Amino acid sequence: MDHAPLIDPFLRPITYLRVSVTDRCDFRCVYCMAEHMQFLPKRDLLSLEELDRLCSAFVGQGVRKLRITGGEPLVRRDIMTFFRAMGRHLQSGALEELTLTTNGSQLARFADDLAAVGVRRVNVSLDTLDADRFAAVTRWGRLDQVLEGIRAATRAGLKVKINTVALNGFNEDELFGLVDWCGAEGHDLTFIEVMPMGDMEEAGRLGQYWPLSDLRARLAGRHELVDIAERTGGPARYVRLGGSGQKIGFITPLTHNFCESCNRVRVTCTGELYMCLGQEDSADLRAVLRGSESDAPLREAIRAAISRKPKGHDFDYSRARISGQMSRHMSHTGG
């Protein structure tokens, strides 16, 4: 069996896997999905057993952090079966961290179960604390349900990090309110630049774009920002607010390319392995999974794909147009 670590062509160890377990979601966030999405037929999705085989193959080749995404991962039927299966890799020590990104809508139901299998922290996507705005940006979501989910996660002992997409003309005036709320609740907060994913019209996406360089400058007008070197295995760069010590992260795929230290790859809910979020090159792992009961061909396919991992992506909003735009929806690839 080949259990040598996965090393890409630029000598970066691949230790972080993000896996989408469903393209479905109970929200329809305007920057992520169309309102009337055509979801994939069930047969196209990896089964929970196939997801187990796939993730276990990655863990066997040195992946130490596994993040479960969607869509909304907690709307997948029997999803705790999969989380429990991955929990065995935590117990063996092969996996250091099992975590998920969620919209928070189902956390009140699942927080205790997630904690029981070894999940220690979750990322919750939350772009506004205004109930009407929340309903507008998610189309179908209810803010009170998400806030209750966050409280349930905290009660279960899960560390919650809030992910907020910076949206021009939408949540600019909530910058300080979100920072203050996260500080009071004990949640870390990361701001994310909107990315060119999906079939949205260019003008609409350009209109949503709020560069984090501007957001950070506004924050610096009120708080002392102290850069910290911390890395969590993801692309965020962090500061602490002088005085409170509150941690704020910035994910800037457009104004600051973070590719040089990239240690992660993504698998979609249909088993496509994307070596880079911002490139179209992928490997079909579903066909390999379904073509052999042995995991040896799967490990070989993963290794071959990692050998093609590019140095970086091409997202660019300059010159009033979007280059490097991806045609696939973020809900398919996994947030």
Score class of each variant (00 low, 15 high):
residue 185 E to Q: 15
residue 268 T to I: 12
residue 114 L to K: 10
residue 63 V to E: 12
residue 78 D to N: 15
residue 117 V to K: 07
residue 167 L to Q: 05
residue 215 L to C: 10
residue 128 T to M: 05
residue 324 G to F: 03
residue 216 R to D: 01
residue 167 L to V: 15
residue 281 D to A: 15
residue 310 P to G: 11
residue 307 S to A: 15
residue 238 Y to V: 00
residue 146 V to G: 06
residue 255 T to G: 01
residue 174 E to S: 06
residue 148 E to C: 00
residue 46 L to W: 02
residue 12 R to T: 08
residue 57 A to D: 04
residue 328 R to S: 08
residue 30 V to L: 13
residue 60 G to Q: 12
residue 174 E to Y: 04
residue 255 T to A: 04
residue 193 E to R: 04
residue 298 L to Q: 06
residue 331 S to G: 09
residue 317 Y to E: 05
residue 219 L to C: 02
residue 269 C to K: 07
residue 90 L to V: 01
residue 328 R to H: 12
residue 87 G to V: 05
residue 279 Q to V: 04
residue 23 D to C: 13
residue 26 D to N: 15
residue 188 D to L: 07
residue 130 D to Y: 07
residue 196 P to C: 02
residue 127 D to Y: 12
residue 172 E to R: 12
residue 224 E to S: 13
residue 322 I to W: 05
residue 220 A to M: 00
residue 285 L to H: 03
residue 204 G to Y: 10
residue 179 V to R: 01
residue 171 N to C: 14
residue 126 L to W: 06
residue 20 S to Y: 11
residue 234 G to Y: 04
residue 328 R to V: 00
residue 25 C to N: 07
residue 128 T to W: 04
residue 171 N to V: 08
residue 42 K to V: 12
residue 191 F to D: 06
residue 5 P to R: 11
residue 172 E to K: 12
residue 18 R to A: 06
residue 287 A to V: 11
residue 235 P to C: 10
residue 319 R to F: 10
residue 290 R to G: 01
residue 238 Y to R: 14
residue 49 E to Q: 14
residue 213 S to N: 14
residue 308 R to T: 13
residue 24 R to S: 01
residue 287 A to R: 15
residue 309 K to F: 02
residue 10 F to I: 08
residue 154 T to E: 11
residue 150 I to T: 09
residue 200 M to G: 12
residue 195 M to T: 02
residue 278 G to E: 06
residue 240 R to M: 05
residue 63 V to C: 14
residue 251 I to Q: 02
residue 174 E to W: 03
residue 223 H to G: 03
residue 69 T to L: 09
residue 64 R to K: 14
residue 44 D to I: 08
residue 209 Y to T: 05
residue 66 L to K: 09
residue 312 G to P: 09
residue 21 V to T: 10
residue 137 V to G: 00
residue 330 M to Q: 04
residue 36 H to D: 14
residue 183 G to D: 05
